[in-house]
Design a protein around this nucleic acid. Sequence first.
DNA 1: CGTACGGTTGAGTCCAATCAAGCAGCGTGG
DNA 2: CCACGCTGCTTGATTGGACTCAACCGTACG
Lengths: 197, 197
Amino acid sequence: MSVDRGDALFWEGDEAEHYYQVISGAIRFCKIMPDGRRQVASFYLPGDLIGIEAADKYRFSAEAVIDSVVVRFPKSRVEAAAAEDPKVGQALLTIALDRLTAAQNQMLLLGRMNATERVASFLLALASRVQLRDTMPRIVDITMSRTDIADYLGLTIETVSRAFAKLKKDRVIDLPHPQQAIVLDLARLEQLSEGAA
Amino acid sequence: MSVDRGDALFWEGDEAEHYYQVISGAIRFCKIMPDGRRQVASFYLPGDLIGIEAADKYRFSAEAVIDSVVVRFPKSRVEAAAAEDPKVGQALLTIALDRLTAAQNQMLLLGRMNATERVASFLLALASRVQLRDTMPRIVDITMSRTDIADYLGLTIETVSRAFAKLKKDRVIDLPHPQQAIVLDLARLEQLSEGAA
DNA sequence: CGTACGGTTGAGTCCAATCAAGCAGCGTGG
DNA sequence: CCACGCTGCTTGATTGGACTCAACCGTACG
């Protein structure tokens, strides 16, 4: 399946009938409050499975950040496979537990970090999630918009922009293009993400 | 095992060798930043399993909020049981997925809600997690301190206290004792937790 | 009875949100 | 080809909600 930028795989409240796996692109997993406030719980990148936490209905919406390709599995078929082969269930469990740990770390970010620390953590996470080639890439491609980043980090687009500007001014990163960052001082970035002022 | 108020089941960084199940009391699951900022990821109440997300090492600490009793299982034994009986693995998966959904909702709270909305959500969660008797209890016992609540909601103790005071002033709850709230206007509390100003 | 601790309340500060321009890239159409 | 408008990003000025600092209160406890 192809999904265009901005299109939804499913909406919060839909009957949860499918799992999705990202092949290419990026999907945001988010929830919107009645007055429009939005929180992105996570970004799903190629290889990631979407929808595993849904029991009866989806509790979050899944929308394409950029044009993407996903495969869709009927939920019932995955469940049948899991019942038949314990390894499938085990694999799902591993994914769920990893994701739980990530969610708990994100709570620390949202609950206790300031704007600069949040953006630093975000950049590090992006850098480490991209192809794990030889070493941590110095060039980080930022596929999502400032709006998506802000809603992921619990900030506004202005604050995200200012945090990028501050990191650039402090020579921690360079920002040749809004969608691309170059890590100049990895150690400093790590310090920031750990909360060292 | 008995654990006294304030004592830890394990610390962040310890080798993850055990699962724990809460029998009585309450355990907080938290992480502390180098400069002392603390985030409580969740409170575990009787029946809850602790430590399932740990792979090699614990990523969070677990400490008793009040004097508590827990049972401890060797991790290896649970894993063996899961390998043998698919139902064990399935049960673990169900727990992990429920917890993931809870964590995602907590992200919305931490990222986008104001102080009053956070406290309202917290009270509702407490009310619904206590014994599910006939209906939602009007009387909510708050076992944890303001410090723990603040670190769970990403606020300070003063702000938590002020939010409680505001809810009381607005006749949404009564607060006969700092550790006990009485829900006067459940509908309003639910509105607040959903983000209706 | 005095001290300590947890909670509340008040005053002032600060960081991020809000409000408001301004700018750069880009696709469209005259 | 270029003017135009749109969209996304940045930057500036101001505001506001939560944080900080500080005092105070009540209960528990030695």
